Amino acid sequence: MDVSFVKETTAPRRPLLYDDQRGLENLTREQLVTRLARASAAESIPMALSALTEYVGASLYLLVRYDLIQEQGLDFAVSSNWPFDMVRRIGQDLALAHVKSSEFERCLAFLQPRFALLPDEADLPEHLSRQYCSLTLNVGRTRLALLLLFPDDVVLSPERLRETGLLAGYCVSQSVSTRQRADREFELTERELECLYWIAEGKTSDEIAMILGISRNTINNYITSVMRKTATKTRSEAIAYAVRNNLV
């Protein structure tokens, strides 16, 4: 994703980049592996992201899901230690950029560090740069972005940034995959999952009935059961739940 959508009154000062050969270590790879192993054992995404943030030399992290950015509230934020108001404000800009970019542009942005400025009205801690780095990554069929805030005049490693994005995707996948499989097997039947998939594709009950070869009333019963099990009140809420939990 091209994050150059942020309005810039002056040309942004790009963080300095450095070659790993020259050092400037923040967290060694050995230390990172140890921290990530602990995070994996605890199935904790925040623990993993905190380790990766320190590894790359950043101060704050924000992991978001693009497919939920336009939902109300802050459900698009998977994990973050950014100030609450800043997360809410940046969500509007991320949604706008996501809508404007093509699928081809989004694919080109995969694991490529992109730099943009926070909105002028964002209340930023004094020691941090207003410029942030965005890394787009995929976990299964879910597209996410890791946004990192750095101290002023930090020296960055392009290789470490890409490595951080790759490891972030791996850690998220590892921490949720077991729980999601268990939830899917325990809570929803295969037929309920089929109905959930088709309503997520925008199909009506009549269309789903024709696709699956069963009656419309039966389809509605399955959908009602899905909403009861997922504690949702509408089909839209059920779809949002399914997307958040990688059920469709």
Rank of each mutant, 00 (worst) to 15 (best):
L161F: 08
L161I: 14
R162T: 13
E163C: 04
T164A: 02
G165S: 03
G165W: 05
G165I: 02
L166W: 03
A168N: 02
C171K: 05
C171H: 05
C171D: 11
V172M: 02
V172H: 08
Q174S: 07
S175L: 02
S175P: 06
V176P: 11
S177V: 00
S177F: 01
S177L: 00
T178I: 05
T178P: 00
R181L: 10
R184S: 15
R184W: 08
L188N: 05
T189P: 08
T189M: 01
T189I: 05
R191C: 06
R191L: 10
E194D: 13
C195M: 08
Y197E: 11
W198T: 06
I199P: 03
A200P: 11
A200R: 03
A200Q: 12
E201W: 01
T204L: 06
S205I: 07
D206L: 04
E207V: 08
A209S: 15
M210Y: 09
I211T: 14
L212D: 13
G213V: 09
G213H: 11
R216N: 15
R216L: 04
N217D: 15
T218C: 09
T218F: 09
N220F: 01
N220D: 15
Y222K: 08
S225W: 13
V226E: 11
M227I: 06
R228T: 07
K229R: 11
T230I: 05
T230L: 03
T232R: 11
T232G: 09
T232P: 15
T234Y: 11
R235D: 11
S236M: 00
E237H: 13
I239A: 00
A240R: 15
A242H: 09
A242S: 13
V243D: 06
